[in-house]
């Protein structure tokens, strides 16, 4: 796979001296879904706005499909579709005309059949003659996506597509994104919902305070950084963890009925078998055991909160 978007040493500081992006490097591979995860004010929107041409970079370079976004802005922007975070739409226009307007703005010839196809894909077919202001919030978000797709982009930026959206609509949005990926569009989405990144992304980038802390394959990241826990429920409460089990660093619950063992999934020996044997030797009777893997959320919180 090759990079379709390449960001090199990108810096953005505002007039007041605030540094929104500090030397960001990012390679986005063609056909992938990359989730940029970060708290509010981390620089997610600034990064997207700079790639899309809304914000001028202070230094560094960006290429899209090999075209520099400054010197060859037309070629670069032709490849990009942007779905903004805020619902910014002309309220008095009809759905069809506002989507068709976007196509024209990108210099493409009017193509009603194509616009209708997109609207149908996004379940907006029966709303195409409705005025934008008559639509629900969820429908308006779909219109924004339709506008971004109107000129057949190869890269789609979704800036917090599910912020303030109910659970059902969020699932719909994920399906739409999966459908777009299947049609060959590269997707970059920002979110501060960890479950969103976990559900749909191929790779996850963590951004905080204008810096990209890490970009990694989602599964790899979770395997590498994920810790698993073994929870042991005892038949009878124990007042103290037997000293023979000290090496396992077990955590005892207040009621003395539960012991928790944390282990690394990547190490060769997890120590589970010996632990279970040792528990028996120590005379503790197990009632139930279960394992749990830490979620992306735990990893994320760990990364962002880490003191630097």
């Amino acid at each position: 796979m090759s990079s379709i978007v390449s960001v090199q040493n990108l810096r953005k500081s505002y007039a007041g001296g605030f540094e929104a992006l500090k030397s960001v490097n990012l390679e986005i591979e063609e056909g992938e879904i990359l989730a940029l995860l970060g708290p509010n004010g981390a620089g997610k929107t600034t990064l997207i706005s700079t790639i899309c041409g809304i914000t001028v970079p202070t230094s560094g370079s960006i290429t899209v499909g090999g075209h520099d976004t400054q010197t060859a802005f037309r070629a670069a922007r032709n490849l990009i579709g942007l779905v903004p975070q805020e619902i910014n739409l002309e309220p008095f226009e009809t759905v069809f005309s506002t989507v068709s307007f976007s196509r024209g703005l990108f210099g493409k010839k009017r193509d009603d059949a194509y616009i209708n196809k997109i609207l149908n894909q996004l379940s907006l077919g029966d709303k195409k003659d409705s005025k934008v202001m008559m639509l629900s919030g969820g429908m308006k978000r779909r219109v924004l996506i339709a506008k971004a797709l109107a000129h057949e982009p190869r890269v789609l930026f979704l800036d917090e597509p599910t912020a303030g959206v109910d659970v059902e609509l969020r699932k719909d949005m994920w399906e739409i994104v999966a459908g777009l990926k299947a049609s060959g569009v590269t997707i970059i989405l920002t979110t501060h919902y960890i479950e969103e990144a976990e559900a749909i992304a191929d790779r996850v980038g963590v951004i905080n305070k204008g810096e990209i802390l890490l970009v990694q394959d989602k599964a790899e990241m979770m395997a590498q950084m994920g810790k698993k826990q073994l929870k042991i429920e005892l038949a009878t409460a124990t007042d103290d963890v037997p000293t023979a089990l000290n090496a396992y660093e077990l955590a005892r619950s207040d009621d003395g009925l539960h012991l928790t063992y944390t282990y690394d999934t990547t190490s060769e020996r997890t120590g589970i078998t010996t632990l279970l044997n040792d528990l028996q030797k120590a005379g503790l009777q197990m009632k139930d055991i279960q394992t749990a893997q830490s979620s992306l959320e735990d990893i994320f919180v760990g990364l962002v909160k880490e003191p630097t």
């Binding site: 809304i54 802005f73 037309r74 922007r77 942007l82 910014n88 703005l105 990108f106």
Partner: peptide, 13 residues
């Protein structure tokens, strides 16, 4: 005012 300027700024115009 309504924010649709983003489209003009991100279009190849």
């Amino acid at each position: 005012f309504i924010g649709t300027i983003y489209e003009l700024l991100s279009a190849p115009v």
